[in-house]
Design a protein around this nucleic acid. Structure first.
Lengths: 191, 191
DNA sequence: CCGAGTGATGTCATGAACTGTCATGACGGC
DNA sequence: GCCGTCATGACAGTTCATGACATCACTCGG
């Protein structure tokens, strides 16, 4: 239990997000963020490795969630069903946070480097899930292809859900995504 | 036709890659790169927006290649076949460059920010290909899913090809990748 | 109650990544 | 031969990021 509660870290995240929203990511300096949080810039860098990290700090909780989904299930299921559960778990967690996620996505879309970091994060998730599936007994190739496709579809679906005002929930959209691949691959379209 | 040939730009790329290989990406400064290329740091930043760009500058030629593959084909084909051609074109271009790509990949893998940039580049490719497929008359959803899956598999396949010494060529591996998705989705595995 | 220890923070200094601006000097055209 | 162009150099300035060391509030053993 630190003497100073997690206060400053939280304040830094809040300050960063609000300032990014107000002036844009590139235009806000870490001095400004620190000032709004009531600390010095040096303290900012003790909590976050760099300016970008303030935007991604919260995402670290999600991977354990996904891994637990695989680890907790003991009955025999197909790898596809397991992947489906993993994405479902993610959707549950993201669903209520739509407003802040929309704002966050707008910031990310404004900077290529942020887009890259988001994708790199997903890539780490992807390989962690692949490993977990392999540990669960599935073949490496099978697991790899499945999580690669799974996260590619997740990314597409998430963006569509954030971009379109109404429509189906994230969970509903994700439930349809994987099965739809079959129809896409089977369909014979002319161009 | 610039009076000074592309000389310094090429020298900068060469200097950057060799220095990244020798001392690591983070440990080599722009000043060192510029010095080895025989110019000043200011000149480096005239050619490349930032330090990372020296590693990615050459990749810009590939997107036009892929787009041309879609644009040039006038006979009716399925979207899947078209996507297959796009990836085949990419493979042709990458196949002979395996040695330098291996070195480049090692550098990219050493830094999250570089990984992110690589993925962001692929994301741009992906949406460009989606647009091209849509312009060719395919449905947006169909095109989007197909290029998402296509590039996800491309990435997997490229890494496997670079990591494993022998085995099939990149083109051969890619030819198998998309069709294999069907078997992965149909297969019922227990875990 | 007090003094040593601990941990988050501040201060100072430094280096490296960029950016703006102006000067130079070799060319190519006219 | 003069003139504009343009890649480059030179130099100053800002922001990001990190290392070294001091501080201050609280904790805990005595």
């Amino acid at each position: 239990m630190p003497r100073w509660p997690e206060d400053s870290r939280t304040r830094l995240v809040d300050a960063a997000i609000s300032l990014f929203g107000e002036h844009g990511y590139a235009a806000t300096t870490v001095d400004e963020i620190a000032a709004r949080a009531g600390v010095t810039a040096r303290t900012f860098f003790r909590h976050f490795g760099d300016k970008e990290e303030a935007l991604f700090a919260e995402d670290d909780e999600m991977l354990p969630l996904m891994l637990a989904t695989i680890g907790d299930s003991t009955e025999p299921v197909t790898a596809e069903a397991l992947m489906q559960r993993v994405l479902g778990r993610l959707a549950e967690h993201l669903e209520p946070r739509r407003p802040e996620l929309t704002q966050r996505q707008a910031i990310i879309d404004s900077e290529v480097s942020l887009t890259g970091r988001e994708l790199a994060k997903q890539a780490r998730w992807q390989s962690a899930i692949t490993e977990a599936l392999v540990a669960r007994g599935f073949g490496a190739e099978h697991a790899g292809v499945l999580s690669a496709i799974g996260f590619a579809l997740f990314s597409r679906t998430l963006h569509a859900w954030l971009a379109e005002p109404g429509g189906a929930t994230l969970s509903e959209r994700l439930r349809d995504a994987l099965p739809r691949v079959r129809t896409v691959l089977d369909e014979v379209s002319s161009g």
